[in-house]
Design a protein around this nucleic acid. Sequence first.
DNA 1: CCCTTTATCTAGTCACTGTCAAGATTGTGA
DNA 2: TCACAATCTTGACAGTGACTAGATAAAGGG
Lengths: 201, 201
Amino acid sequence: MIKKNYHHGDLATVLLEAAEKELSESGIEAFSLRAVAKRACVSHGAPAHHFKDIKGLLTALAAIGYKRFVHSQHCYQNKAQSDPQSQLVAAGLGYIDFAVKNPALFRLMFSSEKPDRDNARFSAAANAAFDKLVDDSRSFYGVDPYKDRTAMKNVMALWAMVHGLADLMIAGRLERPMGFSTMTRAERDSELAQIILRTIV
Amino acid sequence: MIKKNYHHGDLATVLLEAAEKELSESGIEAFSLRAVAKRACVSHGAPAHHFKDIKGLLTALAAIGYKRFVHSQHCYQNKAQSDPQSQLVAAGLGYIDFAVKNPALFRLMFSSEKPDRDNARFSAAANAAFDKLVDDSRSFYGVDPYKDRTAMKNVMALWAMVHGLADLMIAGRLERPMGFSTMTRAERDSELAQIILRTIV
DNA sequence: CCCTTTATCTAGTCACTGTCAAGATTGTGA
DNA sequence: TCACAATCTTGACAGTGACTAGATAAAGGG
């Protein structure tokens, strides 16, 4: 894209793309707004007009992350069998796959204090992700978790299991006991599915 | 403690205490070595002699965190019934309780890239925590996870479940669906135990 | 006991950071 | 055409981590 001076045209989008690359390469803890501006070929003051500050930019990026995250789960579900149990496991595998492919973005979304969780777009995207989990669970268990506390505990158990696997995977904690790096993705997914199934009753 | 100049006497310990307070109050992302030095009443260059750099200090602190972490699980187990299932659930509740009481330390231990995971003290402490989980699982399942892959998957499932609950709790994600903040600790632990039990077969 | 070495700190510097503000430039609308 | 708003550049400031020079104190050997 040819950069215009002073009226770039679509700097917000370019900054988000640059931010995603910066996040991917340096991680959330070494993320630098000035480095993002450099990647976008603008001055360090330019992002302020579009995102107010570094938290604003990361909040927007995290919201985008949630959309990608839900999309990853849909991709896995599209390839899985259509029975509710297979769909539930597939969503879990999509959850984990997203985390493994985007560890820094996953950290931004779930572990970082940088995003503004009161931000409308962020909370809409995060709630959509949670609602999907609830919908998938309703399909499997046949009970509405928003109305039945035991059903909600089942959702919590499933979410904790899948989130725990994702978090420990990207922290590198499952490598020594499970040896995932020596496996194909299909083999890894099969092992993970067996672990996830330990919580689906 | 009366501070001596130039030969403090026990500055390493004081810096670790100051670091824990700084971490607790500002979180891992806003953690500042200079702020730690101020709390310890020394110049910003003093920590370098004892901990080389900020990562060195945080690595030492994370190792201490793991010891407290294991201690928290033992405390819960000391109060629980002695059958293996109660002990396993109690260890899980101790895991979660530690995270809730020390969210920033928990993040440092599990999610941060700052600690040097090749550091001998760090990996010894982290491995001890993992070994405890494996030992508790062996007591319950009666099979050695280091020798039986299915048993190791049971450990992974249990760990993921408990770690997921802890991580989502400190991220504030379980509040809306579960309403833990309105409960006593005993009520919360009872609900969490029911969720953990969904994965213990 | 004195001197040298080592340990342990202070103080300063540098480059990088986020934020803020002043001002320059460009587009829009009346 | 002009005023205003949008959008950027530039500079400044305070704080940061890391590094270095040098000051201070303790230890050890002769």
